[in-house]
Design a protein around this nucleic acid. Structure first.
Lengths: 155, 155
DNA sequence: GCTCAATATAGGAAATTGTTCTGGATATCC
DNA sequence: GGATATCCAGAACAATTTCCTATATTGAGC
């Protein structure tokens, strides 16, 4: 389960982050090895869950998702039942791309990707009717300056 | 450049979002087509930039990135020069996974992924020494409840 | 420092997959 | 309603993945 990750693994992961459509031979060349060890390492990294998903990163606007909100949530309810229902509500809604429980004044932050402001309002109304929250602030993104999931795996 | 995206394209994109390591045959079967048209559509979607990147989604904690901050930034400087320098500073820093320019009271929000609080402080000090900002609030994530880049391409 | 065991490696064979081509079907425009 | 363009299924070929085998490397115990 717990794998030891060395420099070669990090190089492989860096290459795959950069472009996961490369062939094994290309990755092997990039990391200075041959395809068999690279293939075995990738398999182990997948098994261990270090590689969680292989996916494509799409242009949200080209697909009609033109609005993005960051939602700051304060709640006065902190019992386990409320938390479980809130968690489930977030996980069930595909608009919610990120959800974090925070330390401090604000309890949760969400990133919500929707087609337009109307769709955000529908999401908001549905959410607050499902779970009670004390205070909600929505920050509307005007421009996505940067967006990546890449980790800086500098060797 | 501007492609028309139909239901089949959306099905293909949905499959690729779910698992980009599938073979063309698998995707073709899933969308009810054969691999030639699927291959041509994928090529066009890549050319048009709808598919921006094929990548792997890694377990940040397993790789030692144990801290995640959302940073709310207010500034009193809004001229083009300042903005260009700020933009460049964000794009140059690999810790910054997301950066959005906002409407309203708060001007920018960042998502910053670092190894620990000390690394965040180093980032913060470097940033404010490079560009002048009026007010910075950091929200520390305690728990990543949800994290995905998938768009809800319901057909 | 040597031996043995464990592990990692390169190279190659077989199976699978990606890419291109061809002919035929469907839709569109005049 | 016919010409034009577009799209699709299937086959052929090229490339890649997957697995196997033999060799090299590393580390622990003596």
């Amino acid at each position: 389960m717990a794998v030891r990750i060395d420099g070669v693994d990090r190089k492989i992961l860096a290459e795959m982050q950069r472009d996961a459509s490369q062939s094994l031979d290309d990755i092997a060349r990039a990391v200075g090895s041959s395809k068999t060890p690279v293939w075995n390492r990738i398999r182990k990294l997948k098994e261990a869950g270090v590689i969680r998903q292989q996916t494509v990163f799409l242009d949200a606007e080209a697909l009609g998702f033109e609005a993005c909100f960051f939602v700051l949530i304060r709640t006065s309810e902190h019992d386990a039942d409320w938390q479980a229902r809130f968690l489930k509500a977030l996980q069930d809604r595909a608009e919610v791309q990120e959800a974090h429980r925070l330390a401090g004044d604000i309890d949760y932050i969400l990133k919500v990707r929707v087609r337009n402001a109307r769709a955000y309002d529908a999401f908001y109304q549905a959410l607050i009717s499902e779970v009670r929250v004390h205070n909600v602030t929505a920050l509307l993104s005007m421009e996505e300056i940067k967006s990546t999931t890449m980790l800086p795996l500098e060797i």
